[in-house]
Design a protein around this nucleic acid. Sequence first.
DNA 1: TTGCTCCTCACGTCACGTGAGGTGGC
DNA 2: TTGCTCCTCACGTCACGTGAGGTGGC
Lengths: 140, 140
Amino acid sequence: MTISPQAGPTLAYSQPTSSSRRYFTIGQLAKEFGLTLRALRFYEDRGLLSPQREGHIRIYRASDRERLAVILKAKALGFTLSEIKALAAEAPQAERLALSLSAAQTADQIAHLEQQQAEIDAALRELRTERARLLATSAT
Amino acid sequence: MTISPQAGPTLAYSQPTSSSRRYFTIGQLAKEFGLTLRALRFYEDRGLLSPQREGHIRIYRASDRERLAVILKAKALGFTLSEIKALAAEAPQAERLALSLSAAQTADQIAHLEQQQAEIDAALRELRTERARLLATSAT
DNA sequence: TTGCTCCTCACGTCACGTGAGGTGGC
DNA sequence: TTGCTCCTCACGTCACGTGAGGTGGC
């Protein structure tokens, strides 16, 4: 969950300890990351993951698992899946599993989230006032 | 944009001054509230508005306009359209254009928004750290 | 045979956006 | 005739949820 220590404009997960296994089923990854099978298949459909196949069955490698971690990290930062796909595509060859964020892109996303934050703050202020009013009224 | 001064668990817009006109076209309401025609038709499709018709053309009355204001107010508080529909249906007969919010519902919505706020706050913290790192790196 | 995990459609949800193709009145 | 506003489909977008119907191996 930490930003990678490498220099340069990249975000990445540090290698988790439990990745000693070489291959993962869709069920294993879903459980580990708290996702549904549908979500994992959807990420594949959107071109964000491309596990190998053994017949019809998906086989995820350690690199797929790392990439998934990066995807979820970026989602937590508020990027859409298509933005994530683009950011991953821009990443330098040596860091195919990371995201490439420029200072400008980072600033854009900050502005975007600050906007949402302001809307939620305004709603919360009103709702708290309203709740106080309701409680005061019912107590009377 | 203020909570109605009436006693009781209701939220409503105060009557705006420009409602001297008795009827409105969809275009007039869209412009006034900063919505698209599609949005207004969509609210109708979801059963939140039911303007009259003159042939095929929608005719909105002052009461429709007030109801729209309530809908947008509730949306700003983070309620979904189906929640808004339910809240409007629960409102007492005499306040058909208002929303009926209980203290419990208000508390639920506050909790919901606080959850979102926490996620956005966490994302913002990371993005600001990352931006600072990017700027420091590029300055070196 | 049951139970578990995996698979591929494919429609549903949320709140609209975006044409396509057409009408009515100044 | 042009321009404006209105209309009804109906598919697209976003990130999946949710069955339906079927397979493979212990």
